[in-house]
């Protein structure tokens, strides 16, 4: 108690009185943010990732060259195979055009616009596939951890999925189910659904294992017993008490899942099993330009750098989140 206030009971033992906190309570997320700020790589990674997302989202509104525009006749000859403007620095004879800062491809389409629309698809695939895999992983992990009867079956299933040769199976499935899905959702939509669901279905296992382990440990804690004793139904127990406590490992594997999904999608597109050529993603752009790489290295360089930078920033972000969300590290 403060010494200025008049004490009604004169005899108070100092050791027994509770210390009053002098500062207002801090929320957990403020602590997390403080720790996150310490990790410089994570901060830079997070900002870079946000900038990339903004660039592909807002970019097409600012840079309103149509990515699909195919010039015809004389315009085609004038426009095609333009080099990026910086090439003019060392090569006077290079064909550059200020209207196309990153140049054009062999059909005269603007590379910058194609990079932006490709990035939209790549990042959309990454985020959606990550969401699907996290949903599946969390669902299976929580069910396996909470309901003892399901544990054996679901964990055997997880082991089985871990033993499957995933990349070959994804390749096979992406070719075999392409036409059916294209008939239902249209060509682009079908491939999108196909790629997202293939990546999601083949990458939930690690999340499920982590979540199951955490749920198993949490289940024995007193607050769960308390919640059970006042008659909380299993559904609310899971949603209100278990899920908030396993959020941090889920968030970490979600960030890292984005990186895995973007790489897998690009690999599929690179091998020619992903999106069609007129609906480019970064991987597809890279694949299309590998053949003439010695003449036009920029067409490989820019999509490759975009993939690498996105994945690098997401990996650093995940690294920082792991440190920030771990209470044992946060105290230090």
């Amino acid at each position: 108690m403060t010494d200025s206030a008049p004490q009604p009971t004169p005899k108070r033992i100092a050791a027994l009185s509770d210390p009053i906190p002098t500062q207002p309570p801090r929320s957990q997320w403020l602590d997390v943010w403080d720790q996150f700020k310490q990790h410089r790589g994570a901060l830079i990674g997070g900002i870079t990732f946000l900038v990339i997302i903004l660039a592909v989202l807002v970019g097409p509104a600012v840079w309103w060259v149509d990515a699909q525009y195919l010039p015809k006749g004389r315009e085609f000859i004038n426009l095609r195979d333009t080099r990026p403007i910086y090439v003019a620095l060392w090569d006077n004879a290079a064909k550059v055009d200020w209207a196309h800062p990153l140049g054009t491809d062999n059909l005269g389409r603007d590379t910058l616009a194609r990079m932006m629309s490709g990035g939209r698809v790549s990042i959309a695939v990454g985020l959606t596939a990550m969401l699907l895999s996290i949903l599946l992983g969390t669902l299976i992990g929580v069910v396996a951890g909470y309901f003892r009867r399901m544990d054996g079956v679901l964990m055997r299933l997880t082991d089985l999925f871990l033993a499957l040769p995933l990349l070959p199976l994804i390749l096979v499935a992406s070719l075999l189910f392409r036409e059916t899905l294209s008939a239902i959702f249209g060509v682009e939509g079908g491939v999108f659904v196909l790629v997202v669901s293939l990546i999601g279905i083949t990458s939930w296992m690690h999340t499920a294992r982590i979540v199951r382990g955490d749920v198993l440990a949490l289940k024995e804690r007193e607050f769960i017993l308390a919640a059970q004793s006042i008659g909380t139904k299993p559904k609310y127990l899971v949603i209100r008490h278990l899920l908030p406590n396993v959020m941090s490992p889920i968030m970490v594997s979600a960030t890292l899942g984005i990186a895995v999904a973007i790489i897998t999608e690009s690999a599929l597109s690179f091998l020619g099993f992903g999106f069609p050529p007129d609906f480019p993603t970064w991987g597809r752009l890279l694949n299309d330009s590998v053949d003439r790489m010695d003449l036009y290295p920029e067409r490989v360089l820019w999509p490759g750098l975009a993939i690498s930078l996105t994945v690098l920033s997401v990996n650093y972000l995940g690294d920082g989140l792991r440190d920030a969300l771990d209470p044992r590290i946060r105290g230090r």
Partner: peptide, 8 residues
């Protein structure tokens, strides 16, 4: 090494 894919 983690982030730059082999196809790049």
């Amino acid at each position: 090494g983690f982030s730059v894919p082999p196809f790049f």
